[in-house]
Structures are given as structure tokens and as C-alpha cells.
Design a protein around this nucleic acid. Structure first.
Length: 746
DNA sequence: GTGCCTCCATAC
DNA sequence: TATGGAGGCACA
């Protein structure tokens, strides 16, 4: 029986079937294979082997060669890819292209020669010929007339080397510089370029150029050296927290970031001592770097992040197989070649950055849990505040929750509803003056960049909104621009209101970094003020060195190295944390406030929150004398409510997003999809919608959403069968375990 | 008719 | 993802 191979490519499709040549051995799952693809070649990953009927065997193309003798992606990880595809309702190739950091885009040398005894084609039987020089290679292959071989192109680089020794033609006075350059090159053997040699030997570039022209030195291609991997500063941890657990689901919450990492040490040391690797997944570049900084002094640590270029990734893939290590990684770590994985650690379990916003929209903690289950290893999650999901799971057997004491924080709550000062209350200004008097530092957090959330007309109330989106344009006073934070459209500022022709256009709604910065400069003259958001990242090195100053920032500052002399952290509008109408908003807001101290580790700055709703229950928690108790009862209440509404973690939710350029089509098609699903799912799912998304129109696309919860654990691949793959006139995107689901609850 | 662009289906 | 074909548009 012919053998068919299921091969996955990094494109959004399921696996394709190819035929194994009849004389070839069956390769192992997870190796890379090279196959004919349209006009050329392509590298894919072998994910399945099966027998097929002889008739199908005639229709399929044959693979050309197997690239690896050992699996490139371990069989368990290969299974994980297929499982994730199923659970995320997306094609397996899309999961592969999202998670695999390297290996499928190698440049290949493809050669062919005629099989012995075949004379009637124009190809040599003795010499390999480059396939690119042959016209009908596909035809020859199908007829079985040729043999083919494929090699990965080794990476070369060009260097300057000596081609012939100094001779009498270089003895003249005017050739002095050339002699110097030649002698220098003789002593160092090779340099990367002509200008590099000129610089090193301290001669002119033209002297070097002349040497090349005369043939004394020449460019040679040689194997490129292994690229250096990025290095990180080492941080010492002053706390010792001894903690070892044999549970297979462990949560470490509370304390400071540093303490949570200290609590990981014993477990990591034990894994390494048992020759097991440790995989640490962090949600952001800066957290990857920080975590690596804490660990590398104690453990052999490697780092895999999106910042590595292709050659560095290849080197890392090689280095990872040498010994048991700690790998600190982005989600790329899930398919890294760690042969003996002993534990998986997730940093900042609840960070929204763990949710991938493209492709199959995976949620890293869920991927980590699936992998841990598959290879039967423990998983450890850390965060400032335990998530509702984890709280429920740690109540089960073989789970453990290490609750570190919450840091004693000094809070001050400033009531904006009774304040006349906007955007900075009198209280905040007073504290800022103290900061200035004592030459300390302050961080003011703004919910947005720009000057204000909108520019509007004071006489008729008209707000200028984006021509492409249902959003107000953000006002940039300095640049004299209006900008849409969704589609990046920029408009210049109109002189008059388009509605009533009045000249009274003014900054409206929430204050952004520009506005706050301007206010601080005016009200607190004499202290340096910096801005730090994704539009403008001021150089904060003076503040890093301890000098006095105020930083007005968005959450971008959380990714900056902590400042050293901070005595005030202010959230200028606490209420914006609750503005997302997501059922997780309160939990997230509390988590954000609890982790504000990370901006000034080992210090105890005043944390000042400005709010219009000081009666909100989160303030009671922050005020409580027994914070731990208050937080715990908040979390327990949260679980009770989630259970009552049947929300996660008590059910699984998916969002179906329907978009179309035509509003009517979007409306009708989302209703049609809703009805189709209703009939298909019967009592196994609860369906909500279709409703307009929080921003109905984005980039001229109209967006509807349908929520579906899986009531009897059928799996969304089953529930959504009628619409995957979707063929129709709108764009349909499926998001399992969605985050930031605006307008869903209450 | 040509050139250029966008949209969209398709890949074994 | 990447490629090519279909269809639209401007221009000669």
C-alpha cells in the first residue's frame, strides 16, 4: 500500500498529503521534509503518516527529500500543534506559523541528475545539475527519470584576506600606507571589510582599495561565524524564599516581582539537578529581559524572543540541545527543542499580552497548560494577583497556591468629583510640590497619549470623529494634528466647527500625556518634566541616575527600567481602568494597582489615585487594614458571580466577529450565522448576539459579534462546525477565550 | 489595447 | 503566506 504523509506548511491551511517514494523509509513525525510546491520547493513539517489506496497514490505528488534525521519539532509538540488547531478553530498551518520561530524558511540548493541508463533526456547521469537550470523538472520527476538532492545553503560571509605577500613593488615611499595595511592584515588574518581594515590599520580607504586592485588582498567567502546571542545585565535578588512543591499546578501570587522570581529558585534548581530543562514564558520583551537578568547569574539561561534574527534563532536551536537549561521565551518557546522539559513557568499569568492578537489568537497560559498536560510536567504561574481561573484550579487536588504577603503601600485617594482642578487635583499638585522640594521623582500615569481624547465644539457639542472609524479623533496640540488611534488617520485641525461654524473648538474628554505634562510644567515650575509614551520616549537617564524629575507616561513606562528615587506614583484617572466593559475589568484594575509598586521596587512611594468614584469597592479593598483578607473575599465573591452568570472559569466562551464593508451585509450575515449556529448547537451552547462591537466601524468595516458558551464541553470545533471554514461574503474571525470583550456583561 | 491596482481564491 | 487571475480604472 502506498504511504501518504501529512505535511504542514506555515500557511493558514490544514496539512497537505504527499506520497512517500516507494523505496524510502518511513520518516519520524516532526521531521522537516522538502516537497514540490507550485513551481518550486517548500519545506514542511511531517505531522502524520498513513496508508492510502493505490488510486489516491497516483494523484498525490511525492516528497523530494527528508531534511532531518531527528525530529525538528518533537512528536509531543507536533501533537500540540494539531490539538491547538482544533481547540482554536483555526487551520493547523496557522498555528505552526505562529509558534515555530525558525526552520521552515531555509534557503535550499536543489540539484538533479538523470538516473543511470536514461540517455534520452538532456541531463547528465554523472554530475549534479542545479535544478534551476532545468526546464521540466516536474515532468522528469513524475516520470521517474531523475534523482534529486537538496542541501541547506550554508550561511557565508565575505572577508578580506591576503592574496599574495609583500614584494618589491610595494617598497616605495608612496606605498607606505599600503604596506602598513598589508602588515596589519597579516597580523589579524582577516577583516570584515575594506573600510574596517582602513580604520584598524589607520590608513586611508583608498590605500586599501589599491591593495585590492593590485591583487595583494582579496575578498573571500567563508562560513559565517556563529552569531552572538543578546546579553542582559545580571540582577541580584536580595530576598530568599524557600519554596518547593510537588503539585502539578502551582500559583505564586502577591509580593513583588522580585520575590515571585525568588520563589521559583528552588524548583528551578531541583529541575536542573535532575537534568531537566525549565521553560519560562513571559508576555513581553521587557519581562523576558528582566526575568533573564534575574536568573542568569544562578542558572544556565538562554533567551528566545522575537528580537532574535534568523541566524540567532538557528544558533539557539542548536545550543538548546546541549544541556538542561532555563529558557526564557516568548510564546516561541512552546516549540523550542527542549528535550527534557521538567517544568513550565508563566510570568504574569493574567497579562493581556499573553493573548496573541493575530493568527489563531492563542492565549499563552492555555497553550502552556496544554503542553504541560501533554508531557506530564508541572506548571507554575506567577502574578501580583491570582486570576479567577487559577483560584478555582488551585482548589482542586494536586494544586498549590503560594500567597506572598502584599506589600504595605501608602495610598492616597483624590476625589475628582469635588475638585475644580482638571486634570490634576489640588492634592496631587501639593504632593508634586513636595517631590520637587525634596528633589525626588514622580511618575504620573495617563490613560492615553496625545493632548486629549477629543477635540470638540463648545457651542454645539459636536466632537470631531474619524472618517473611517466610530471613534473620536485624538487631539495632538503640539503637532497641531488630530489622529485616530485605530486607523492612524491624521487630519489637520479645522478652524471652525463643521456643524455650527463656531470658532470655539476645544480639548475635550480625558486628558492625555501632553495635557498633563503641560499642566505640570505650568503648575510646578523648575522641576524637569519628561514624557514617556509610544509617541515620544524621552531619555530618562538623568532620572535613572537619581536626579529629581517628573515622568508623565502611559503604561509604556512599565516596560522601562525602574527609576531609582521615586516617591510618588499617581494614576491620573483611576476610572479609566474600569472603562472596559469586560467582566474582568475590576480584577484587572486591582491587579494593575497592586503592581504599581513595580515602578519603584524596594521603595515605598506614595500611590495617589484620582477618581470620580471613590465609593467603588476597589477603594475599600485598598483601604482595608487586612488587605489579604479583603482581596481574598473579593476574589471569592468574583467566583460566585462568575458561577451564577456561567462565565469563565465555569464555562468556555468564544467570540465570533463578523466584519464587512457593507453595513447591511454585515447585519444580515451575522444574523444568518447566528441562526445557523442556534440550530446546529441546540442545547449544547448558549448564544448571545449578534451585537455591534464596542467600536462598530473600524477602518470602514462594520463589526458584529456573537458570543457562544460551550455548555456541555463539546469543544468549539464541534459547536462551530457549520462556519469553519467559513465561505461567504463577510470576514469571520473566531476568538476562543477572548479578552477585552466590550459590552458583554451587565 | 496596455499598464497598474485591488481583491480574492488557492495551494496536495 | 505567496501567487496568479479577475475585474476595475485611467490613459493612449
Amino acid at each position: 500500500m502506498p504511504i501518504a504523509l501529512d505535511i504542514l506548511f506555515p500557511i493558514p491551511t490544514p496539512a497537505f498529503s504527499y506520497l512517500l517514494p516507494f523505496d524510502a523509509n518511513i520518516p519520524s513525525i516532526g521531521v522537516r521534509v522538502v516537497v514540490p510546491w507550485q513551481q518550486g520547493l517548500r519545506i514542511g513539517l511531517l505531522v502524520g503518516v498513513r496508508e492510502v489506496g493505490a488510486s489516491l497514490g497516483l494523484e498525490l505528488k511525492q516528497i523530494i527529500t527528508v531534511l532531518d534525521s531527528q525530529p525538528f519539532v518533537l512528536p509531543k509538540q507536533t501533537e500540540l500543534i494539531l490539538e491547538l488547531a482544533q481547540s482554536s478553530c483555526s487551520p493547523a498551518g496557522l498555528v505552526l506559523s505562529t509558534l515555530l520561530a525558525t526552520g521552515l524558511n531555509e534557503e535550499l540548493i536543489h540539484e538533479a541528475r538523470a538516473i543511470e541508463g536514461i540517455k534520452d533526456i538532456s541531463i547528465s547521469t554523472e554530475h549534479w545539475v542545479l535544478a534551476s537550470q532545468l526546464d521540466n523538472i516536474n515532468l522528469f520527476r513524475e516520470q521517474g527519470l531523475i534523482k534529486e538532492q537538496i542541501r541547506i545553503v550554508p550561511i557565508k560571509h565575505k572577508v578580506l584576506k591576503i592574496a599574495k605577500p609583500i614584494d618589491e613593488n610595494l617598497q616605495g615611499k608612496r606605498q607606505l600606507n599600503q604596506r602598513i595595511a598589508l602588515e596589519w592584515l597579516d597580523s589579524v588574518e582577516s577583516v570584515a571589510s575594506g573600510s574596517e581594515l582602513a580604520r584598524q590599520a589607520d590608513v586611508s580607504e583608498s590605500a586599501v582599495r589599491t591593495l585590492v586592485k593590485k591583487g595583494y588582498i582579496t575578498y573571500v567567502e567563508e562560513d559565517a561565524p556563529e552569531p552572538a546571542l543578546p546579553s542582559y545585565p545580571s540582577y541580584e535578588i536580595n530576598k530568599e524564599i524557600s519554596f518547593l512543591s510537588d503539585a502539578d499546578y502551582i500559583v505564586i501570587s502577591g509580593g513583588s516581582k522580585e520575590e515571585r522570581i525568588a520563589a521559583l529558585y528552588d524548583g528551578i534548581a531541583r529541575a536542573l539537578a535532575n537534568d531537566r530543562s525549565v521553560l519560562i514564558i513571559a508576555p513581553e520583551q521587557s519581562l523576558i529581559a528582566e526575568t533573564a537578568s534575574y536568573l542568569q547569574a544562578k542558572f544556565p539561561t538562554l533567551v528566545l524572543s522575537g528580537e532574535l534574527n534568523d541566524r540567532q534563532r538557528k544558533r539557539l536551536w542548536h545550543d538548546l540541545q546541549e544541556q538542561a537549561v532555563v529558557l526564557v521565551a516568548s510564546y516561541f518557546g512552546f516549540l523550542a527543542p527542549l528535550h527534557k522539559l521538567g517544568q513550565i513557568i508563566l510570568i504574569e499569568e493574567s497579562s493581556s499580552s499573553h493573548k496573541l492578537r493575530s493568527g489563531p489568537r492563542l492565549f499563552s497560559p492555555s497553550v502552556a497548560k496544554a503542553l504541560a498536560k501533554k508531557i506530564n510536567c508541572p506548571i507554575i504561574l506567577t502574578d501580583s494577583l491570582i486570576s479567577a481561573e487559577s483560584l478555582l484550579l488551585t482548589k482542586k487536588a494536586n494544586a498549590e497556591h503560594l500567597q506572598l504577603p502584599y506589600l504595605e503601600q501608602r495610598y492616597y485617594f483624590s476625589d475628582m468629583s469635588s475638585s475644580n482642578n482638571w486634570p490634576l487635583s489640588a492634592n496631587l499638585l501639593q504632593v508634586l510640590n513636595q517631590v520637587k522640594d525634596r528633589s525626588r521623582q514622580a511618575i504620573l500615569l495617563s490613560p492615553r497619549r496625545g493632548y486629549s481624547a477629543a477635540l470638540g465644539c463648545t457651542s454645539c457639542g459636536e466632537i470631531i470623529s474619524c472618517p473611517n472609524c466610530d471613534l473620536s479623533l485624538k487631539y495632538y496640540q503640539e503637532q497641531k494634528k488630530l489622529r485616530c488611534h485605530q486607523c492612524s488617520t491624521e487630519l489637520s485641525i479645522p478652524k471652525t466647527c463643521s456643524n455650527c461654524n463656531s470658532y470655539e473648538l476645544q480639548a475635550m474628554r480625558g486628558a492625555g500625556t501632553e495635557w498633563i505634562l503641560k499642566t505640570v510644567k505650568r503648575q510646578i515650575p523648575g522641576i524637569p518634566v519628561y514624557r514617556y509614551d509610544s509617541d515620544q520616549r524621552d531619555d530618562l537617564s538623568a532620572m535613572l541616575a537619581g536626579e529629581a524629575g517628573v515622568v508623565v507616561a502611559t503604561s509604556a513606562i512599565l516596560r522601562h527600567q525602574p527609576l531609582s528615587n521615586v516617591s510618588l506614583i499617581a494614576l491620573t484617572l483611576f476610572d479609566s481602568l474600569l472603562a472596559f466593559s469586560d467582566y474582568r475589568a475590576e480584577e484587572e484594575a486591582l491587579r494593575t494597582v497592586l503592581s504599581l509598586n513595580e515602578l519603584a521596587p524596594n521603595k515605598r512611594p506614595l500611590i495617589l489615585l484620582q477618581s470620580f468614584q471613590l465609593e467603588h469597592k476597589l477603594f475599600k479593598i485598598l483601604r482595608a487594614s487586612d488587605k489579604l483578607k479583603a482581596i481574598n473575599s473579593f476574589l471569592e465573591e468574583l467566583l460566585i458571580r462568575r458561577k451564577a452568570y456561567n462565565y469563565p472559569p465555569y464555562s468556555k466562551i468564544a467570540r465570533i466577529q463578523i466584519s464587512a464593508k457593507d453595513e447591511q451585509i454585515a447585519y444580515h450575515e451575522s444574523n444568518r450565522i447566528f441562526d445557523t449556529l442556534k440550530i446546529h448547537c441546540k442545547e449544547h451552547a448558549e448564544l448571545l448576539g449578534p451585537s455591534q462591537m464596542a467600536i462598530f466601524r473600524i477602518r470602514n468595516f462594520y463589526n458584529y459579534q456573537i458570543f457562544i458558551s460551550d455548555l456541555s464541553s463539546q469543544g468549539f470545533d464541534e459547536l462551530l462546525k457549520p462556519i469553519i471554514p467559513y465561505r461567504g461574503q463577510v470576514r469571520v474571525r473566531i476568538d476562543i477565550e477572548p479578552r477585552e470583550i466590550g459590552g458583554f456583561l451587565e
